[in-house]
Design a protein around this nucleic acid. Structure first.
Length: 420
RNA sequence: GCGGAAUUGGUGAAGUGGUUAACACGCCGGAUUGUGGCUCCGGUACGCAAGGGUUCGAUCCCCUUAUUUCGCCCCA
């Protein structure tokens, strides 16, 4: 038997129902905020991710799906959504437009990792990118949009953890101070951290192994190294979030694993799910440098991404969604071939009038049809029999009250709709 | 990439080195000449993840592989 590749998932049944529901909420919220849907390729030139996500990030170092196509090009399956959107923005010279571009996407991503709960090799993220504006209002809008989507899904106890890495100058000053502080003490930290000191010292801050270490607790904080401009900027963002009533927490250890971030970085968690592993439902940040890094002009960008797979897992724990099930409106029952011909016609008519209709497509007997109708949670049954059909009549039965009535065959659609 | 645990039908699962792999749910059929959901009766794994080995004989022992799951790492 052929089985699904490791770390992939078939989304079906009730999961698919929840999935659809999440998508509907996402789409309508994105539309209310005036974000434009964008679909970029599932694969891109490998170089795009190396230059954007960053050579030192784990994502690029060991987690990408890379291959050579038949033209000997280096191709990578996208591990995240920002790079492709930014590439498109630059390639189409949209930076020349007078307004900021506000994009949202909802796509599968690929990372070659060891699968675990809440971590798959193929997973789906929705997210946004706002390109061309560095206004603090946009930071607040993006964070609040993410927050409000999760809120609209009735995920409780949401909290935004937020930090600022500052501009280049601030970031470099901080990095210098951190390395200076850590170098004499590095022997006391874990092996990975010793490696990180050289490659990506900021990541030492959210090391799980050393998280309780005094060394890290007393380490310099990013916020203390922000220059005046960056600091004012960060304070403004927080002020706007206050106005929007967003529940946030400044957490100086949030640095994020992607190299392209500067200024605002954030992630959103549901405090209900204690296992801190998969409770990070989404994260994001500002990436002003990235556009230039990818051969565009000096510009601005900010975005977030949320994992739908994780969100669906959370929804499953919420009472509201536990009994979610599909219900059809009408089940049309018949037995004989002659009845079947009438059924064909009636079913099509109902469907074309927008009534969710199912019928006996397994050549079942009457008893089997009743059972199937119950399994499908049919609200109404339409029962055909030869004798009545000759008189131009069909039976409509309410599957809840068991009341039934014979109605005119020609008026079946109206009669059904009147009862729904 | 490293370490631990798991893998029996549509589902939940019991089980033993030796004829027909419990039990339950579900599903199918019948009792009920075309109006059911109750009840009763019957059927429902050519097979115990895949491949190989040990053995007179393995679902149960060993090896390999795959997948799942937990932890590390990392992230959504």
């Amino acid at each position: 038997m052929i089985t699904k590749p490791k770390g992939t998932n078939d989304i079906k049944g009730n999961d698919a129902l929840l999935w659809e529901y999440v998508n509907n909420v996402v789409n309508s919220m994105m539309s209310a905020y005036n974000y434009e849907f964008i679909r970029t390729p599932i694969f891109e030139a490998s170089e795009l991710f190396h230059r954007s996500v960053g050579e030192s990030s784990d994502i690029v170092k060991k987690e990408t799906y890379d291959f050579k196509d038949k033209g000997d090009r280096n191709i990578t399956l996208r591990p995240e959504g920002t790079a492709g959107v930014v590439r498109s923005y630059i390639e189409n010279k949209e930076y020349a437009l007078p307004d900021a571009k506000k994009y949202y996407y909802n796509e599968t991503m690929y990372r070659y990792e060891r699968p675990q709960k809440g971590r798959l090799r193929e997973f789906t993220q929705f997210g946004v990118e706002v390109l061309g504006s560095g206004d603090e209002l946009v930071d607040a809008e993006v964070i609040s949009l993410q927050y409000n989507i999760l809120n609209a899904l009735h995920i409780s106890n949401l909290q935004v953890n937020i930090n600022s890495l500052g501009d280049n100058e601030s970031r470099n000053n901080y990095k210098e101070a951190l390395v200076k502080y850590l170098t004499p003490k590095i022997g006391e930290l874990c092996e990975d951290c010793q490696e990180r000191l050289k490659t990506n010292p900021l990541r030492i801050l959210d090391c799980k192994v050393d998280k309780d270490s005094e060394i890290l607790k007393n380490a310099p904080k990013t916020i203390d190294y922000l220059n005046k401009e960056s600091k004012e900027r960060f304070e403004k963002v927080l002020q706007y979030l206050d106005y929007l009533d967003i529940d946030y927490q400044v957490d100086s250890n949030i640095v994020r694993g992607l190299d392209y971030y500067d200024h605002t970085v954030f992630e959103i968690v549901s405090l209900d799910n204690e296992e801190t592993k998969s409770n990070v439902l989404g994260g994001g940040g500002r990436y002003n440098k990235l556009i230039k890094e990818l051969d565009g002009p000096e510009s601005y960008g900010i975005g977030f991404a949320c994992g739908i797979d994780r969100i669906v897992e959370v929804l499953k724990t919420i009472d509201l969604y536990k009994n979610i099930q599909k219900e059809i409106e009408v089940y049309v029952m018949f037995v004989s071939e002659e009845e079947k011909l009438h059924a064909l016609d009636i079913v099509q008519n109902l469907r074309l009038n927008g009534v969710m209709t199912e019928t006996n497509n397994m050549n079942k007997g009457l008893k089997g049809e009743f059972k199937e109708a119950d399994r499908l949670n049919a609200k109404l049954l339409v029962i055909l029999n030869n004798e009545d059909l000759k008189k131009g009549l069909v039976t409509i039965k309410d599957n809840a009250t068991k009341e039934e009535e014979k109605v005119d065959l020609d008026e079946i659609v109206e009669e059904v709709i009147g009862r729904l």
